[in-house]
Design a protein around this nucleic acid. Structure first.
Lengths: 244, 244
DNA sequence: CCGCCGAGTTGATATAGATCAGGAGCGATA
DNA sequence: TATCGCTCCTGATCTATATCAACTCGGCGG
């Protein structure tokens, strides 16, 4: 049933980038013709440059996006002017799921660095999902995972638990993509991390410093090395336990 | 295209209860035969009594549940023993969406009072969603809404904003179900509310008291009357703005 | 190469909300 | 009706994290 990535049609292979979109297509018995049909839907967009917006609050919802290269953040600015970062999106991850219900985007999506995305026109993907059970199942799974992840983030945890979970989550995602799970560059500023974790930037700085003092990590500006993954995992076990 | 509720087959009509499951079936061009097919999938379960569990963490995921009568909470207990309430579910609302991805339940679901639920076997519902575009679209919409709601809850807001949004959300949900949007009984304890909003129970008590002093609400134990809905809405505008 | 500017860090202080402690109301049980 | 056992409320403190303030560092333009 499973199809090695090399057999994916071209645009789709690009969209997949060793990621959740690969999951979207591969492990559920999509065969050549099915993949070809999905592939023909995919358009490429970009490159976006740092700070460019992929979509903004209020934009009509037409398509889901899969990050192909670079990274994005999604965020809102509330009526008091506070910025809330909803998520960071690495290659292969899907953007825009929250816009399906209202039919317009509820958040802004902005490139954190030079980024390329694949456009998945929603109506057509949905139609195809009607015909291909594996695609439908995988779409539901991705949305389901999004719900669980967001719920974990919504929980009541300390600054240390939250930052540990953040680093652990990034590590896991890099690992899945074939990059080092213990040494990587952060694409986002301290301010973005803080807004994501509901902390002040100063608190993020301080917890980074504390982790470094404790020998958990080595951090310099945006480059991070995880020195004690097991201990980091234990620190955030309570939080990751909610994500499955 | 739209079908008035009276035309729904019996079990489905029960499952709907003037709610999101009604949305699931009605407004998207499901006709009589389609509805009949969905109806035959629905089984009823209950009554559950206060404190009974509908499912528990780790249970194999077989079905989604729609509350038909009464109400439920979903919650987790983390490795430190802290309880996190993920949501409260009124008649018509769907439970268990977060379990699709991992194939097992990530949270516990417990009746807050005497409750009846409808069981929607997931595989069969998914198959049917493949055949009926309107059902598929509506399932996606419900999951999408769940993502947006959870993201709003995950945001960084004050105790007052959070409690105001909680009351406002309940009001809205009661209104949609044909009940009074300004006078209702809370099915959940202060402790549950606090765990849901990431506050201490004492803080919930105090904010209730403050709201009452300010003439916003009248509250006595679990009965609540909203006296100034516009002002309440303004208090939580920042938060509800994230939900669409 | 210098000087600027924004990002990040670090220290001092403030505060929202937690925790601790006690008491009041209310329903269930006998 | 008395007593237990909750849930809820209220006051007194405590604390994790925010806020305010100053400084450092590294990159970039001129």
């Amino acid at each position: 049933m499973s199809t090695p990535q090399a057999e994916l049609p071209q645009r789709l292979r690009e969209a997949c980038a060793a990621c959740s979109l690969k999951e979207l297509c591969l492990p559920r018995g999509l065969d050549g013709p099915d993949l070809m049909r999905l592939d023909t839907l995919v358009e490429r967009r970009g490159p976006l440059h740092e700070g460019d917006h992929l979509f903004r609050v209020g934009d009509s919802f037409q398509a889901l996006y899969a990050v192909r290269a670079g990274s994005c953040k999604t965020y809102t600015v509330d009526s008091e002017g506070r910025e809330h970062v909803l998520g960071f999106h690495l290659p292969g991850e899907l953007l825009g799921l929250d816009a399906i219900y209202p039919g317009r985007h509820l958040c802004n999506a902005q490139a954190l660095d030079t980024a390329v995305v694949c456009v998945l026109p929603y109506e057509q993907v949905s139609d195809l999902a009607g015909q291909i059970g594996g695609l439908r199942a995988q779409l539901m799974r991705l949305m389901s995972k999004d719900i669980a992840d967001t719920a974990a983030l919504a929980g009541d945890f300390t600054a240390e638990e939250r930052l540990a979970a953040f680093l652990n989550g990034l590590s896991e995602r890099f690992r899945q993509r074939g990059y080092s799970p213990v040494e990587f560059q952060l694409a986002m500023s301290r301010r973005d991390i803080a807004n994501y974790l509901r902390l002040a930037t100063e608190t993020v700085s301080r917890v980074f410093a504390r982790f470094e003092n404790d020998g958990l990590i080595a951090v310099n500006r945006r480059s991070v090395r995880l020195l004690d993954l097991p201990r980091l995992r234990r620190l955030c076990a309570a939080m990751t336990g909610m994500q499955g």
